[in-house]
């Protein structure tokens, strides 16, 4: 059943993504073509800059589109009239949520790759080779400066942070939409309100942390110095701890949002 869910989820996304990705690649090609006419004329300067602005906008728009698709798929497929079909399929709510989130993140990654390809096409020729050379040089320098084993771990940890970050953002939206569904009317509005509430909480917590941090630095400078020395002496461990801490936090947050969405669907579902 899960395989079938994936199949249909991918098919639904494909329909949505195709025009967007074609546009992104198309703009890359157009940019490249315009760049072929490189010269010092005013016409080229204007069109060259415009088309590059368009290119950058296109990559951002593509990214935004993927986010919109992900939110739309969750809302429309589960809570609009389509919900009558989705929730009478012999599939558990957990399977629905997991399939949708995994599909969204995987396709977001693919969309990013397509955007990169598009940029490469646009920049091909001298600009591309120079950029690649610079990139390779940076990577070499990185490996020279840092210890190899730690670097590999860092890469893995950072990759996890980024991947989990995508899931985290998505599950936050899922939870907000699900919370909105518990209201009797204006469910979309309530979802937005839920998001604002979350935002407020984050702001409050961040401010509290900032205050604690500032107060500690002022009130206990020796303690802070000791901490700073400790971190500098155990630089690698500290970074690993920090990254692992972020990963654990992300996992917990995702779990919380998942539990919220899942429980609401299982217990509080009430389709129009």
């Amino acid at each position: 059943m899960v395989k079938k869910l994936f199949k249909h989820e991918f098919a639904a996304y494909f329909r949505l993504m195709l025009p967007v990705e074609v546009a992104v690649l198309g703009i890359g090609i157009i940019t490249r073509i315009i760049m072929l006419f490189e010269n010092d004329s005013i016409i080229f300067k204007i069109s060259g800059v415009s088309v590059w602005i368009l290119m950058v906008l296109a990559t951002f728009a593509g990214s935004l589109a993927m986010l919109i698709f992900a939110v739309m798929r969750y809302y429309k497929n589960l809570f609009s009239y389509e919900g009558y079909l989705s929730f009478t399929l012999p599939v558990t709510p957990a399977q629905h949520i997991i399939v949708k989130s995994v599909t969204a993140v995987v396709l977001d990654f693919i969309a990013t790759i397509i955007a990169v390809i598009s940029l490469c096409i646009a920049a091909s020729g001298n600009l591309l080779t120079e950029s690649v050379k610079a990139g390779v040089y940076l990577v070499q320098k990185l490996f020279e400066t840092f210890n190899n084993t730690h670097l590999v771990f860092y890469i893995v940890e950072i990759a996890l942070v980024l991947i989990l970050g995508s899931f985290e953002k998505l599950f936050l939206y899922y939870a907000c939409i699900s919370i909105g569904q518990t209201a009797k009317k204006h469910r979309v509005l309530m979802a937005v309100v839920a998001y604002f509430v979350y935002d407020m909480i984050v702001w409050v917590l961040t401010t509290i942390f900032q205050i604690i941090f500032t107060v500690t630095t002022i009130a206990a400078p020796e303690f802070c110095e000791k901490v700073a020395v400790f971190i500098t002496n155990h630089a690698y461990a500290s970074v690993h701890t920090a990254l692992s801490g972020i990963i654990i936090f992300e996992i917990l947050f995702i779990a919380l949002c998942f539990v919220i969405s899942h429980t609401i669907i299982r217990k509080k579902l009430n389709l129009e």
Binding site: F87, L89, P90, V91, T92, R266, L269, N270
Partner: peptide, 25 residues
């Protein structure tokens, strides 16, 4: 019956199963 709502109290059995994956089949 279709598992689109959960009961407040009492029970419901569809084709011998509580509303869920097995009943939906």
């Amino acid at each position: 019956i279709n598992g689109l709502l959960t009961p407040t109290s009492g029970s419901i059995e569809v084709a011998g199963f509580a509303p869920g994956v097995e009943s939906k089949k």
